[in-house]
Simulated scan of single mutants.
Amino acid sequence: MNHDSYADYYLADILRDTRVIALVGASPNPERPSNRVMAFLLRKGYRVIPVNPGQAGKAIHGQAVHARLADISEPIDMVDVFRAASALPALVDEVLALNPLPKVIWGQLSVRDDRAAERAEAAGIKVVMDRCPAIEHPRLIS
């Protein structure tokens, strides 16, 4: 898939079909974008599970923080990535080890690695990169 642009229907379908989001790189700091996006997604009715090894066992926005994706005991629809683009290949490895696989990996603004995306897509996972669901949701759904 060409990740330079996405059809509105592609993004809208993902946002409509998603229920459970693992937010990798979640921060308890209200000044951080991951914290604000998590709050937005919770307000929109998504179940958001924060993932951050440095915050594991604590809570962000009342949601228990997990150290890694494998620690989440329920199926994940989307993995929302607030990490450096250089972390995406290893994160795709972690995602591909999950059972069941999530439907989507969503890389936040500036999070893009086309090779990592190809690997995820080869496993049947949709990929969005360099976009923010808190920007796309109001534009396409609200």
Rank of each mutant, 00 (worst) to 15 (best):
residue 48 V to G: 00
residue 49 I to C: 03
residue 50 P to W: 12
residue 50 P to F: 04
residue 50 P to G: 02
residue 51 V to G: 11
residue 53 P to S: 06
residue 53 P to I: 10
residue 54 G to K: 04
residue 58 K to Q: 12
residue 60 I to A: 03
residue 60 I to L: 10
residue 60 I to G: 07
residue 62 G to D: 08
residue 62 G to A: 03
residue 66 H to V: 06
residue 66 H to G: 11
residue 67 A to D: 10
residue 67 A to L: 11
residue 68 R to S: 04
residue 69 L to R: 12
residue 69 L to P: 10
residue 69 L to E: 01
residue 70 A to K: 15
residue 72 I to E: 15
residue 72 I to S: 04
residue 74 E to S: 15
residue 77 D to C: 06
residue 77 D to R: 06
residue 77 D to L: 14
residue 78 M to L: 15
residue 78 M to G: 10
residue 79 V to N: 06
residue 79 V to K: 09
residue 80 D to A: 04
residue 81 V to N: 07
residue 83 R to I: 07
residue 84 A to M: 02
residue 86 S to L: 12
residue 86 S to T: 13
residue 87 A to N: 01
residue 87 A to V: 01
residue 89 P to Y: 05
residue 90 A to F: 12
residue 90 A to T: 12
residue 91 L to Q: 06
residue 92 V to F: 14
residue 93 D to E: 06
residue 93 D to A: 14
residue 93 D to W: 13
residue 94 E to V: 10
residue 95 V to M: 02
residue 97 A to N: 08
residue 98 L to S: 03
residue 98 L to R: 12
residue 99 N to G: 01
residue 101 L to G: 01
residue 101 L to A: 04
residue 104 V to C: 15
residue 104 V to E: 03
residue 106 W to Q: 04
residue 106 W to C: 00
residue 107 G to W: 14
residue 107 G to S: 03
residue 109 L to I: 09
residue 111 V to K: 02
residue 111 V to Y: 11
residue 113 D to W: 13
residue 115 R to G: 15
residue 117 A to F: 09
residue 121 E to H: 06
residue 124 G to K: 15
residue 125 I to K: 01
residue 127 V to M: 09
residue 129 M to W: 13
residue 130 D to K: 05
residue 130 D to T: 05
residue 130 D to R: 07
residue 131 R to E: 14
residue 131 R to C: 10
